[in-house]
Amino acid sequence: MKAIVVRTPAGLDNLAMKELPDPGQPKAGQIRVALHATSLNYHDFLVANGAMPTEDGRVLMSDGAGVIEAIGEGVTEFKVGDHVVSCFFPQWSDGLPFDAVANFHDTPGDGIDGYAAEYAVRATTAFTHAPRGWSHAEAATITTAGLTAWRALVVNGQIKAGDSVLVLGTGGVSIAALQIAKSMGASVIATTGSDDKFERLRELGADHIINYRNTPDWGDHVLALTAGRGVDHVVEVGGAGTLAQSIRAVKVGGHIALIGVLTGFNGDIPTTELMSKQVRLQGLIVGNRRQQQEYVAALDQTSIRPVIHGSLPLEQLADAFRQQERGEHFGKLVVEW
């Protein structure tokens, strides 16, 4: 079967299409999936460019969507022909995070082979059903970005109608969070560095939009938009370079879901303001299988569909990463085959 692997030394120029052995038929408790799509995430980019080292020849990509071709003995959750989507932490079925989730040793596309391949044979716990009627490309956006946004707002944030949400930028997590927030009856303030993206954010329901390049102290602007109160939730994907502004923007007793490190890994934190506001700062990485099942169930009851910026074929995965690196996308970049 065809697959995209990363060679040592890692780098986008060292991604290669290889012919690998077919994984064969599933054993007891396993399913065989014909994969058709994956979506790009910052974690995948860090593995591909060598910032997060992995084994030479690792098959890339944590997100994978496809259709079940065969089931092993004892499998009752799935049947042949079901459309499925992968889990970021296949070993984390439910409950609170544990030691093995603190690293990526069992994460596809990092500690184990991922889904930039034609087929996969995995335990049933490595997949969930995809939303009804979604394309494989749409379903592939769930594993990392979609579930992260869901956990940030619904699982950890306990969002409710009338809440206010701040989302940063127009990447996959932020756009999914905007859509989830609006479906829950919340108001949304969105930031972007491009005036060209204002109209698209408005079309998705953003109530207020701030150009962070023109307004570097956007935390104060958020306070002004909320009559000095601040927002209930911040979906914080920037990290060190944006956290101070997010703390400024959140209300007393509010919630910040710390997800990304797009602006760097280290920085100053205004601890006095963090404490005086009694903010709940929750670090998180994606979520567990049960949360993904609940997210899919919610998607089946809504009209939400992921925003896909563009699609390339599998053999152009490196070019897709270069497009991601430029940061010009709105929503998700996907690869299909």
Rank of each mutant, 00 (worst) to 15 (best):
T76P: 07
L46K: 11
I259Y: 06
M1I: 14
L40G: 08
P9S: 10
A298W: 14
M1Q: 11
D44M: 09
N41A: 11
D207F: 04
S303C: 08
V6D: 02
A140F: 08
G157T: 08
L333V: 07
G81R: 06
V101D: 05
P306L: 04
G74W: 13
E69N: 11
P23K: 14
R200H: 12
L60V: 13
D63V: 06
Q30A: 13
I68K: 00
G260H: 06
M61V: 15
R326E: 09
L274P: 01
T242C: 07
G260W: 01
G205S: 13
P131N: 07
V80S: 11
T144C: 15
N288D: 09
P97V: 03
L284Y: 01
R32F: 07
W92R: 01
R305E: 05
D22G: 14
G11P: 11
A224I: 03
L262R: 03
P97R: 03
I256N: 00
D232C: 10
V188M: 10
A206W: 02
S93T: 12
D44R: 03
Y42S: 03
P306S: 01
Q282C: 07
F265T: 15
L258A: 15
E138F: 03
H129P: 06
H329P: 00
G109Q: 01
A176L: 07
G64V: 06
A297L: 08
